[in-house]
Design a protein around this nucleic acid. Structure first.
Lengths: 171, 171
DNA sequence: CGCAAAAACTTAACATGTTAATCATTCGCC
DNA sequence: GGCGAATGATTAACATGTTAAGTTTTTGCG
């Protein structure tokens, strides 16, 4: 037991593990992740039945709300990074769910719109999706839901669009 | 202008696009995603400087808080799916940041612990990370932050561990 | 004992997240 | 007009999310 080199790896002793960090349970990103996952777990099966991922669904919904939209603007609205959006658009276009053409005034810009087929798919998924949302609002409470939305919005605003703390650059 | 087949794809007319869905701005998953991203944007650069991803950091923190832990339990605590965890553990072990051995009583189970090297890395990152967290708490308000945590926890609980609404199975 | 079912991981396969690099087009300016 | 910088979008490369399938070891039980 007092050998200098143990045959099996031994955990570092508790006294040596004292690390200057708050507990995991107080991690804000973790709390947000857990809450979001709990909500998405309700929606995913329904979307999956229709062959859609969460992100694809976001894009279709965003397109259904407008006449046409540019790629960059869609990325902003659907909250997706450019590279992810590029890949998904390629797929959705191949499936005939969306249409795309170049902006005549600026050939760099792509203009997107939803297709009739895409609209039909939305019409199929929407009722179920709305029912799930209603169920969530009922269980959690519409009042509290509104309050939560407000706080999340405030949190986002208070972070600003920049990074607030540089810290030890160290190199 | 009255040709039956336009040479360029035309957006579906507005009247035909009326879809039975609430607006994007009221999407709870979207609000949670945006808030989380706003927060994570503060932490990512610091983690990145030390060659860590968000998930790797979660694992190291979780390991630092205990003597040793099984893979499945770590997945639960760090909120990662098994396959993701498997990959990350392989990488962290190769980098010497964690240790692993098999449970002598049940060879299926892997027992993990953080290494001295891992602890040193945590000690390097933690101060910056804590400073960022403090900055967030200060900007958003400690009171509001606690209230938000409470609501997120309640939301998660109200979703339950199951899916509450079956919906149109349809096939 | 022996063997089918369950449990704990891991691997596989494909979609998305994330940053950096690249490509094509347009803009600003001389 | 022409050319370097800026812009819009895509591609590349690697990490993780997500579901299904596979592997190894245990369990439960006839």
């Amino acid at each position: 037991m007092s050998q200098r080199k143990a045959r099996t790896v031994k955990p570092v002793a508790r006294e040596a593990r004292q690390v200057p960090m708050r507990d995991f349970s107080q991690s804000l990103p973790m709390a947000l992740l857990r809450a979001r996952e709990a909500v998405m777990r309700q929606f995913r099966p329904s979307l999956r039945q229709h062959g859609l991922t969460e992100q694809q669904w976001r894009i279709l919904r965003a397109l259904a709300a407008v006449d046409a939209i540019e790629v960059t603007e869609l990325a902003r609205v659907a909250f997706l990074l450019g590279p992810s959006l590029s890949r998904i658009l390629r797929d959705l276009e191949a499936r005939g769910l969306i249409q795309r053409e170049a902006d005549a005034r600026d050939l760099r810009r792509g203009v997107l719109s939803i297709s009739t087929k895409g609209l039909k798919l939305i019409a199929q998924v929407a009722p179920n999706s709305e029912a799930i949302y209603a169920s969530i609002a009922r269980r959690f409470g519409a009042r509290k839901l509104a309050a939560l939305h407000k706080m999340l919005d405030e949190l986002e605003r208070s972070m600003g669009s920049d990074v607030a703390f540089g810290g030890d650059t160290d190199e």
